[in-house]
């Protein structure tokens, strides 16, 4: 588990990452409630955006390895690519899950009305995995860290708006409403609605299932070794 240990250390090593990984999620807890929409406090509605950003920041570490030639050295070292990748991903997932736990249960302690915190936590975890997998697939087509990050950032803006996290999906015209279903942010939005109103557990499982489908597909795309 050496790679795992160092992946954890590296994730927290620089200041920008530290801010992203600790300060922003904690700030989410204290954001106020909306009047009519969103149904959860703003911080919980927008936490999905932060998860997307954290995903790309963490995955960019793997890209940095490729940029600096570390992957080449690992290729001749007695460690398999599977080991390297899985331990890295494990470290990132641990960070993401911890964050989700802090945000959800911090909110419960702070006294935010979260309806069903347990299910909310599960939803965030599913979305974190999807976000990490998409970021992993994304960086596999790039060679430069900055380029990958900046273009992904602009993509996040669009995906978040089109997925209905910032504007409710009900306001969309018909065509866009149907197209939004492709985006993972749409399913997060649906999940958040379920946490507030939902009763049928099956609906919630379907939402999580879709997110897990994204995870599997994108991990498969992103896990090929590129030197």
């Amino acid at each position: 588990m050496t790679v795992f240990k160092f992946a954890l250390k590296r994730s927290f090593s620089n200041i920008a990452n530290l801010v992203f990984l600790t300060l922003f999620p904690v700030a989410c807890i204290f954001l106020p409630r909306g009047e009519e929409w969103p149904f959860l406090p703003y911080g919980y509605q927008y936490f999905g955006i932060i998860i997307l950003f954290i995903g790309i920041r963490l995955a960019a570490i793997i890209l940095e390895d490729r940029e600096k030639g570390v992957v080449k050295r690992l290729a001749v070292a007695p460690i398999s690519h599977f080991n390297y990748l899985s331990q890295n991903l494990l470290a990132y997932s641990v960070i993401l899950i911890l964050q989700c736990a802090i945000v959800v249960y911090g909110g419960v302690l702070f006294g935010q009305e979260l309806y069903q915190p347990g299910w909310l936590f599960l939803l965030y975890v599913s979305f974190s995995f999807a976000s990490l997998a998409i970021a992993l697939a994304w960086i596999s087509i790039y060679r430069k860290k900055d380029v990958a990050f900046l273009i992904y950032m602009s993509l996040i803006f669009i995906v978040v708006v089109l997925g209905g996290l910032i504007i409710p999906v009900e306001m969309f015209p018909d065509l866009l409403k149907r197209m939004a279903v492709i985006l993972p942010t749409y399913w997060l939005g649906q999940g958040l609605n379920w946490v507030v109103f939902g009763e049928e557990i099956l609906d919630f499982l379907i939402i999580n299932g879709v997110l897990w489908l994204y995870t599997i597909v994108f991990v498969v795309i992103g896990s090929t070794r590129k030197i």
Partner: peptide, 16 residues
């Protein structure tokens, strides 16, 4: 970042 993204966003908002 400064031309394509705002164009998409403006177009999208104008639909909504």
């Amino acid at each position: 970042l400064l031309l394509v993204v705002p164009i998409i966003l403006i177009t999208f908002f104008s639909f909504i």
